[in-house]
């Protein structure tokens, strides 16, 4: 064990992710937390493409990839099949934000409503990275992507990110959490918890993308940490409908410190940065109120 986590790797070296890939860091620790008795279902996306070039696989767990938008449905079939066989394994469903927020949202919503026992983990890098950095429902406001380019008239994406964890929590999911590759022990613990709690659980992991965000490959963890420290990506859990902030950021850094390390935000004006700061402040205040007032998601 190193830092309380097993040394055994289930997502092994030799995969073809970019140098400094945030999602690859997440894959390693998510699978460590899940352990041997786990079936992985993965959506089409970077992590699928880099890990399964026939005849090689980076996975040391039983693994299936079907399509982009149907992992939650495939997992539903696996879960019910195992039930009829009298077997119980962890079912770990993996997808990027495109697969989760957008194209696979219907399948995920349906599977959660039906109450299948699985853990869905979204690696959130805020765009369709595998197809070349296109805007998704998880792309932050004003981010430059190849389909929301920062132009002379339109300065990148014009909308805020979809609040997916809240939407999932409102489905009566027993456990919803956010995590970041900057805090691996926390990620590890949340994955364990999500697999232990009966029913459909959801963890959204913040995973910076080196080419997609235009960051130095050495800085993907640093950028992820700044997202937490600026309150851009708050870490919390919603257990049985009650929200708890798991990382209280008492003295937040200005969002600019997070934004300035990324090429996708380099076109931002002072006003736009202020607008983002105001949004982040308001969202944090809302989280704090939800927590303090014990507001229930269901």
């Amino acid at each position: 064990m190193i830092r309380g986590m097993p040394e055994e790797e289930f997502f092994v070296s030799g995969h073809r992710a970019c140098a400094g890939c945030g999602a690859a860091i997440a894959m390693r620790h998510i699978t460590k937390a899940a352990g041997k008795n786990t079936i992985v279902v993965q959506a089409t996306g970077c992590m699928e493409v880099v890990s399964t070039p026939y005849p090689q696989t980076a996975w040391r767990l039983p693994y299936i990839h079907g399509a982009f938008e149907n992992t939650a449905a495939i997992a539903s079939g696996i879960e019910r099949a195992l039930k009829t066989l009298g077997k119980k394994y962890n079912i770990l469903v993996l997808g990027g934000d495109g697969a989760t927020f957008d194209i696979g949202f219907g399948a995920l919503s349906g599977a959660i409503e039906r109450g299948h026992n699985f853990l869905y983990v979204c690696n959130d890098n805020g765009a369709y990275m595998n197809t070349g950095i296109q805007r998704s429902g998880a792309t932050p406001k004003y981010a430059h992507t190849t389909t929301s380019p920062a132009g002379k008239v339109i300065p990148g994406k014009l909308e805020w990110k979809k609040p997916l964890p809240f939407i999932i929590a409102s489905h009566r999911a027993p456990y919803v959490a956010t995590a970041s590759i900057s805090d691996i022990p926390d990620l590890y613990a949340k994955i364990k918890k999500g697999l232990t709690i009966e029913g459909p659980c959801y963890v959204q992991v913040f995973t910076p993308c080196v080419p997609g965000w235009g960051i130095d490959s050495a800085k993907s963890v640093e950028v992820a940490r700044l997202a937490v420290e600026t309150r851009v990506f708050p870490l919390y859990e919603i257990e049985n409908g009650l929200l708890k902030i798991t990382k209280d950021v008492k003295e937040p850094k200005p969002v600019e410190e997070y934004l300035k390390l990324q090429r996708r935000f380099r076109h931002l004006t002072k006003e736009q940065i202020e607008e983002i700061q105001a949004f982040v402040d308001a969202e944090w205040k809302r989280l704090k109120e939800l927590e303090a007032n014990k507001c229930r998601f269901y």
Binding site: V41, L85, A107
Partner: peptide, 28 residues
Amino acid sequence: LEAEMIHVESEHSACSALLGAQAAGVRT
């Protein structure tokens, strides 16, 4: 009939669940 019916939210998911269940080792 000893079987699990999955009341999926679309035919796309019906076919996907068929794949998942069959891959887990059962007749569908």
